[in-house]
């Protein structure tokens, strides 16, 4: 059974239909990518899953439980975490406070401490700056912080919305290698990217989103070989 299953999802912004009935699934242990151009509905899909935008029709099921109309703060408690588009780190709060906010729903003090140490081992820059106001971090550091914050929720599925946006090529490689490492540690990943090449390489499966509809789907390798995808998203 799929860990996350989206069926005929429709979302409207006023009279404008952003999602026109999309269906896809993410199985336990997979890395799945949604690719698509600006305005295709990728971010809307992510927000709908997290209960941040109202769903008009269709269903979202997580681990057999219907979460379609569950408010966002409850969705997090079930084990879904999201690194939002543009990172949205709390700029006025310290690095440590940002990470502790990721652990807001957790009660296991010792576990929170040790997970924070794991994040700091992974991102030594964040450790050096743990008491610094997050707004003073560089874009790359803020991306690391946003990812660390999401991991502090102890997610079963980690969703990342354009994690490579605005980063230098070296940092982009770093972001993708962290995602694959965490995936090896047992986290299921749903990725939204415009950087189709890099994300398809690490993906088990992928879907192409066009104008609020799923236009294509297949394994990462299949889509990389597809002429349509090459032309539209891989610059060839």
């Amino acid at each position: 059974m799929a860990l996350l299953e989206i069926k005929n999802l429709e979302v409207y912004y006023g009279v404008i239909q952003a999602l026109k009935g999309i269906s896809f699934e993410v199985n336990d242990g997979e890395i799945v990518t949604l690719i698509g151009a600006n305005g295709a509905g990728k971010t809307t899909t992510m927000q709908a899953i997290m209960g941040l935008v109202p769903v008009k029709s269709g269903t979202i099921t997580f681990d057999g439980k219907d979460i379609t109309h569950l408010p966002g703060h409850k969705v997090v408690g079930l084990g879904l975490a999201q690194v939002p588009e543009g990172r949205r780190v709390f700029q006025e709060l310290s690095v440590q406070d940002n990470l502790l906010l990721g652990a807001y729903l957790r009660k296991d003090k010792a576990g929170i401490e040790s997970d924070m140490e794991l994040i700091f081992d992974r991102f030594p820059r964040l450790k050096e700056r743990r008491n610094q106001i997050s707004g003073t971090l560089s874009g790359g550091e803020q991306q690391m912080l946003a990812m660390g914050r999401a991991m502090m929720t102890k997610p079963r599925i980690l969703m990342l919305d354009e994690p490579s946006m605005g980063l230098s090529p070296i940092l982009v490689d770093q972001v993708f290698s962290i995602i694959t490492d965490w995936h090896k540690d047992g986290v299921t990943v749903l990725l939204v990217e415009q950087n189709a090449g890099k994300s398809l390489v690490i993906s088990d499966r992928a879907y192409v989103l066009e104008n609020g509809r799923i236009a294509l789907s297949g394994t990462g390798a299949e889509l990389m070989a597809s002429e349509e995808v090459k032309k539209a998203y891989l610059g060839g």
């Binding site: 941040l52 408010p71 966002g72 997090v76 408690g77 939002p84 949205r88 807001y104 999401a150």
Partner: peptide, 21 residues
């Protein structure tokens, strides 16, 4: 208190941490 500061700065991002705004 931390949650209050988070909601004050970005309610959507606070929701993503499981905070009931």
């Amino acid at each position: 208190g931390r949650a209050m500061r988070a909601v004050s700065e970005d309610r959507g991002a606070a929701t993503l941490q499981g905070i009931d705004a």
